[in-house]
Amino acid sequence: MGQAIKILIVEDEMIIAANISLQLSQLGYEVTGIIPRGEEAILHVKQNQPDIVLMDIQLKGELDGIETAQIMQNDFDIPIIYLTANADDEHFNKAKSTHPYAFISKPFKKLDLQRAIELTVSHMQSEKIGDQTLNGNSVSPFILSDSIFVRHHEKMVKVDIKDILYIEAERNYCRIHSTDKQYLLVMTLKDMDEKLPQKHFIRVHRSFIVNLSQIDEVATSHIIIDKKAIPVSKALKEELLNRLHTI
């Protein structure tokens, strides 16, 4: 199932926070909470880990936004986007130490918010490929260990790998068939095969990659996944059977 990217709003001006929440929902993102204080935000993150935090720098209370971000980053690697009405050098330099993904100056437009979040998602994906390349495993930027990010209806959604049934080639496109939706990506099946985590997926035909955990039946020349017969080429069947034996 495609999951919306989860965003926490830490903002003590409730009218601004409610407006941001509405805009995020319209853009297809899931708001995990609107929190006015840094201390409460830290607790919220521990219980409902979001993908991104929108953080007002000038929070009222014991902790300002930068201090809150520093504490969060001790335990969680969550991207921070700062909201600020006061972008002076002192605040900016202090905020830089927390390596934020973006700054948004108030007042801001919906497009500013949308672009900042899309850039953040893009950077998150790029960092994943960097980490995995360092470990000797080059993986596409949009693929994480347990999910992939895909563009769907003008927004980025997260699809759990366990929910992907199979991937079908359509010329220079790939169609991901999941348990409840389909997603079309501008990518060849060959490129997709090179980038998907091998422990979950295997190419069984020039036009199909399947999720090993979703196979219901194996026949002579095809397999069944979710009542669909998917052809298996002779050259790839032996590897498929070997992989199934090791699961």
Rank of each mutant, 00 (worst) to 15 (best):
M124L: 14
L113E: 02
S138H: 06
S147P: 00
N135T: 10
S147W: 00
M124G: 10
Q125T: 03
Q132G: 01
V150F: 05
E127V: 04
T133C: 00
I129T: 15
Q125E: 09
F149Q: 04
N135F: 09
L134E: 08
L119Y: 08
L113M: 04
Q132H: 09
S126Q: 13
G130Y: 10
T120I: 09
L113F: 02
F108N: 01
D131L: 14
H153Y: 12
K109G: 10
I148G: 06
H152T: 12
S138P: 01
S140F: 04
M124S: 12
I148Q: 09
F142N: 15
V121W: 00
I117K: 06
Q125N: 05
S147T: 03
P141S: 15
A116L: 08
F149N: 02
L134V: 12
I143T: 08
L111T: 11
V139T: 14
A116D: 05
S122R: 04
I148T: 14
I129F: 07
K109V: 11
L113K: 03
H153F: 10
I117F: 05
H152Q: 12
I129H: 10
N137I: 15
E127K: 12
L144R: 03
E154F: 07
L111H: 04
I143H: 06
E154C: 02
H152P: 02
D112K: 06
R151K: 15
Q125K: 07
D112F: 05
Q125F: 00
M124N: 12
I148S: 07
H152V: 10
P141N: 14
M124D: 10
H123T: 13
R115H: 09
F142E: 14
T133D: 00
K109Y: 04
V139A: 08
V139G: 01
L113Q: 03
I148K: 07
G136N: 13
E127D: 06
T133L: 05
G130W: 05
K110W: 00
F142A: 14
E118I: 05
D131I: 14
H152N: 12
H153D: 11
Q132N: 15
Q125H: 01
P141V: 13
I129P: 00
H152S: 15
L119F: 07
L111N: 06
I129D: 05
D112G: 10
L111D: 09
S122H: 05
F108A: 01
T133K: 06
G136R: 06
T133M: 04
E127L: 08
R151I: 13
S138E: 04
G136F: 10
S147I: 01
F149A: 04
R115F: 08
